[in-house]
């Protein structure tokens, strides 16, 4: 497979997953605010979201202050924010466009449909009439994309790169959502384990589509260490960090053709993912809290970035070379020839 194609498949999948996660996060938090509004400091809640997304600087360039509407606009529609839902869908589609021949017709049509929903101007009115319907449309759109990808695309090397992008993004996102709770302080007078605290932890679970699976698994109360255990270490929940790392480790071995048994690896990316997977399997929740949840998650994000870099270096090193040459910038893309007809 062409390195450029592998790279584009990886990113189109990552951006779609990112758009989905942003949509879910906005949807959940808008609803949560309805529950905690009387008690909580609104602004601080929204601030923590922007903070965990590591977009604070850009946000303040574009908006004077943090408000509900500003954050929702920034995360959903703002084209100047490269991580907004609209930007992610545009980037996903742009990547898809360069590798159309690798995608099934159904995949392309779905990605295109999601982009056109925004670019045609249909998105805003729907958002205004019902935010719930709006975010649901995006979530379902992303699920449909993942479904047709599974059901219609060849499960070959390209498909594995799509899986890599999706699971890396998802692992990163789950760790960030878990981290939101660290940044939200409880309102004064509220106790740990109290009503608002529990609502906030439930919001964390919901932001990962994990509330019902959590209940099925523990059949009990929502407790912080259990939430952490579930989102970090549950082997069967498809958005837990360990599940994502296990899946991306599997895809890496499919790509290299190296047997996974007995801790084998052939490339640096496999070594890193294998090591992370082992850590996740053998760490205890106690250890995580002792190290500090925030510090632990921060380190996790760093390790996921290292894996991304190693993947790029291993499979797309050619592209790296080009980047140093001036031709990678705009003129490449815009040099045109007159079509002979």
């Amino acid at each position: 497979m062409l390195s450029r194609v592998a790279d584009a498949l990886f990113w189109l999948s990552r951006y779609t997953e990112r758009a989905e996660n942003n949509a879910r996060m906005m949807d959940v938090n808008l609803q949560v605010m309805l529950d905690v509004q009387p008690f909580a400091n609104n602004q601080q809640h929204w601030e923590s979201i922007i903070f965990t997304l590591e977009d604070t600087k850009l946000f303040y360039k574009l908006y004077p202050e943090i408000t509900r509407d500003a954050v929702v606009d920034f995360v959903t529609f703002e084209r100047k924010n490269p991580n907004s839902i609209y930007s992610c869908l545009a980037l996903a589609r742009e990547n898809a466009r360069t590798v159309r021949e690798e995608l099934s017709v159904e995949m392309w049509e779905q990605i295109n449909r999601m982009y056109l929903f925004f670019s045609s101007g249909d998105a805003k009115p729907m958002f205004q009439s019902s935010t719930y319907e709006f975010f649901k449309w995006i979530l379902e759109g992303s699920h449909l994309f993942q479904g047709v990808t599974d059901a219609t695309m060849l499960h070959d090397e390209g498909w594995e790169f799509i899986r890599l992008g999706m699971f890396l993004e998802r692992a990163d996102r789950t760790s960030r959502i878990l981290d939101i709770k660290y940044h939200i302080l409880l309102p004064s007078g509220e106790q740990i384990g109290g009503n608002v605290d529990t609502v906030q932890w439930m919001a964390v679970l919901k932001s990962c589509s994990a509330l019902e699976p959590y209940r099925k698994h523990y059949r009990g109360q929502v407790l912080p260490w259990k939430v952490v255990e579930f989102l970090v270490k549950n082997q069967t929940f498809p958005r837990s960090i360990v599940f994502c790392v296990d899946s991306l480790d599997y895809s890496l071995h499919k790509i290299t053709g190296v047997d996974r048994g007995e801790f084998q690896y052939s490339v640096e990316a496999e070594r890193l993912s294998g090591k992370l997977l082992a850590d996740l399997c053998f760490v205890t929740v106690d250890e995580i809290f002792r190290a500090g949840l925030h510090e632990y998650l921060d380190r996790m994000q760093g390790r996921l970035i290292e894996i991304t870099k190693a993947i790029y270096k291993e499979f797309c090193e050619w592209l790296e070379e080009e980047e140093n040459e001036p031709e990678e910038i705009e003129p490449t893309q815009f040099q045109t020839q007159k079509n002979s007809s």
């Binding site: 450029r4 742009e94 466009r97 021949e101």
Partner: peptide, 29 residues
Amino acid sequence: PGIYNSAYFEHSFLARTMGIEIVVGADLV
């Protein structure tokens, strides 16, 4: 020439239908 060429859709369509790789100059050496 790449996705900014006005006929890119056609290039992609033909490559897809023939089952061959579509490349840009930077993919070749």
